[in-house]
Design a protein around this nucleic acid. Sequence first.
DNA 1: AACTCGGGGAC
DNA 2: GTCCCAGAGTT
Length: 361
Amino acid sequence: MLPPVPPASALLHWYDRHRRALPWREPIRDPYRIWLSEVMLQQTTVAAVAPRWRRFLDRFPSVQALAAAPWEDVAAEWAGLGYYARARNLHACARAVAARNGFPDTVSELRALPGIGAYTAAAVAAIAFDRPVVPLDGNVERVTSRIHAVEEALPGARPRLAALAQRWMEQPEAAGRPADFVQALFDLGATVCTPRNPACVLCPWQAGCAGRRAGIAGTLPRKLPKRERPTRRGVHFLLRDGRGHVLLQRRPPKGLLGGMLGLPGTPWRAEGWDPAEALAHAPRPGLDWHALPGEARHGFTHFELRMTLLAATLPPGEAAESVNGEWWNPADAAGVLPGVMQRLLALAEAAGAVASPAQGA
DNA sequence: AACTCGGGGAC
DNA sequence: GTCCCAGAGTT
C-alpha cells in the first residue's frame, strides 16, 4: 500500500506567495548560472553563496570565459569558500561543456560531468530544463522524512526518501512546473520545515504530514551518530623578504586544500612537533627561525587543527628567486588564501610580524 | 558503506 | 560548544 501523496497544488500556491528572492532565480534561466549556483550551494549556505556567486559571474560571465581561464584565477576566486575539489571540478566541467558547445539537458548526461553527482544533475535538469525530477538535498530529505514519518536513519534511508519524493513529482500540477516545484521544496525546508522548531502551523502540507500527526516531526530525519573529531597539530613558516612580502607555495593538486596557495609547513599529525623536528620542513634551512607567540586554530569537518608559526627574514642580498614558491604582499594574499591560511596570516599580524591591512590603509 | 573534504551561521 | 548547510569523489 503506497502512502498518500501531499498535494502539489497546495505547495505551489504557497510558493507563489512566499518564495525566496534569490539572485540566481532572476531574470533569465541560464544553465551556466544555475549550475554555478548549485555547485556553490553544495554544503554551503545561501547567505554565504549569494555575494560570491555575483562576484564569480562578474569575473567569469559565461561558461566559455570560465573554460578559458587559467586555474590560478579560478582558485583565487574560490578562496575561502571551502571544499576546493568543487573548484577543480567546476573548472574541468566548464571545459567539457564548452567543448561540446553547451550544457546537456538530461540527468544522465549531466551526471557524467565532473563535480555533478546525483543531486546536482537532478537540480540542473529540473531548474534549468524543466525535467520532472526531484533532487534529494538536505531540505528534501527533511521534508520527505517528516511528511512520510520515515524513522530509518540517514544515510541508509536515502534511497527510500528519494523514491518517495520522486512520487510527488508524478502529480500533473508538479510535472507541469518542475522547476518551481523543486524550488518550492527547497524553500519549504529552508523557511518552514526547518531542522529545529519547524513552523508546522504555517506549512501548506500540515494536513497530510504523518510526522506532525505522530508528534515526531521535529525529531526527523534521524541520523547515525558521528565520530568525534581528533586534534592535529602542525608548524608553519612565515618567510619574509626585504620588502615585507611573504612566501606562499601552491599545494599539490589533490587532497586537502588541493591546488590552493598556502604558507609552507610540516604535515599535520596527532603528535606535537618539537622545533628541531619541524625545522626539517622549513622552506629555507639555516635561517634564524623563531616562534611567534600564540597559536591558530581551525576546525575542519573531520579534525581540529592547531598551528604554530615560525618566522624568519631572507638575508639581504639573497635572491628571492632562490626559494621555491611565490612572494606575496600580505594584504593581497589574504584574498587568495583558504580560510585556514588566513588564520595564520592573522596570527602573524597580531604578533607584528607582517604589516596589517589597517596600517597600510 | 565508510571516509575525505571547508567554512560559516544559527542556536 | 553543536548542528547543518541546494553533496561529490574515492576506497
